[in-house]
Structures are given as structure tokens and as C-alpha cells.
Amino acid sequence: MSTPFKIPQSVLVVIYTSKLNVLLIRRADVPAGMPPFWQSVTGSKDHTTDSWLETAAREVWEETGIDCRVGSALATALRDWELENIYSIYPRWLHRYAPGVSHNTERVFGLQVPIGTSVQINPREHTHYQWVPYQEAADSCFSASNAEAILMLPRFANLDLAAIGEDE
């Protein structure tokens, strides 16, 4: 049985604390001799009818064990930043997509979690995780769109705090 092609619509979820420390996870599928690929949570829609929010919550759960799905304590903390990036798919991953697909649309989300939130990475996808200050996190990312999203964190974190009526 062949694996279905990936849908070229994905999410990027910047997970962070009130101190603007960002969760980075290291990809497991990096070829030998290449530097580690640190990133935020990412992943594609399973079905074209899936919403961006459903996809983001599912990917966070699958990759980190943090539950922000509907009905969870963190469900309202998952925020759609209403930003989209369109980029060329890295050549080494083109085989995962249907023939002729060369670009992906990525929707950006933020998720503020309490300091000390437990993380359980999926060992099939990632080998390590770390919490780092947002500027260091941006410098560590291999993806330019991921780094740019992290650098926007102070602006979006302040909007999130204002929306729920909290101040730092």
C-alpha cells in the first residue's frame, strides 16, 4: 500500500511562555553530516477539509504531548496569528508531494503555555527539545519563516495577553 501524498498546506506553531522562552524541537530525519534542524511545531493537514486550527492542535499534541485541542485547558491559548507564508518545498522532501507540487502554504499560530509545561516529543519525528529565549530560538531555526515568526513573538504575545485581560 502506498502512502498518500502530503497536502501542501501546513501549520507552524510557536510555543512559548510568558517569559518569551520558545520551545524548539530537533528533527530526527536529518542526514548524517548536516547540522541539527531545530524548529517549532510544524505539520501538514491530513485532509483538505481540516481547518487550520484543528491541524495546529493535532500537530502540537502529536509532536509535544501538549494538549490544546478543543475542550482542553489550553484550547483558548492556541491563537491563529493570521499570517501565511508560501515557500518552495525543500528538494529533499518533494517526493512526499504529488507530482508537480513545488510550493507549500504555511499558516502561523502561537501557543502560550505555563512555565514548566511538560513536553513529550515523538521520537519518530524529533530527538531533543529545548526552551530558549525567543531571539536565540530564531537564530537556531533552519527555516527562515520559522525564525521570522519567532521574532514577531513579542508583538503577538502582547496581543494575546491583552485579549485575555492580563498584563506581564
Rank of each mutant, 00 (worst) to 15 (best):
H128P: 05
R58D: 14
P99H: 06
Q120L: 04
P31R: 12
V60N: 12
Y129T: 08
R79P: 00
L23F: 01
R92K: 12
P91Q: 07
A98G: 06
V108Y: 05
H95Y: 14
Q130Y: 06
I121G: 11
H128E: 15
D80H: 07
E106Q: 15
P114T: 01
K19S: 09
G43D: 09
G165Q: 10
E106W: 01
L111G: 05
I66Y: 00
G43W: 04
P133K: 10
P114D: 04
E84W: 01
T3L: 12
D46V: 14
A98R: 14
P31C: 03
S51M: 04
D160V: 04
L153F: 02
T127R: 15
F5D: 14
H126R: 11
A149S: 12
T3V: 12
I25W: 04
E136M: 05
Y129A: 10
A144W: 01
I150L: 01
V108H: 14
L78H: 11
Y129S: 13
P91F: 03
P31Q: 10
G110A: 08
V13P: 14
C141Q: 14
R124F: 06
A73T: 11
L111A: 07
I7C: 08
A77R: 13
D46G: 13
W81E: 13
I86E: 15
R107Y: 08
P31K: 11
M34H: 14
S18H: 11
R26C: 08
H95A: 12
E168L: 12
F5Y: 15
A163C: 06
T117V: 02
T17P: 00
A57H: 11
D80W: 03
A163P: 03
P36K: 09
A162G: 07
E166P: 01
Q39Y: 03
G165A: 06
T49C: 08
S10Y: 02
W52A: 09
A162M: 10
N146R: 13
L78G: 09
Y129I: 04
C68F: 00
N85H: 13
L153S: 03
R58P: 04
N158Q: 14
L94F: 03
T17H: 00
I25Y: 03
H103M: 13
V30F: 07
T127K: 14
L20H: 02
K19V: 00
I15D: 00
W131H: 06
H126K: 09
W81F: 02
I25N: 10
D80L: 00
A149T: 12
R69V: 01
A77L: 01
Q130T: 15
P114L: 00
I89C: 06
I86V: 15
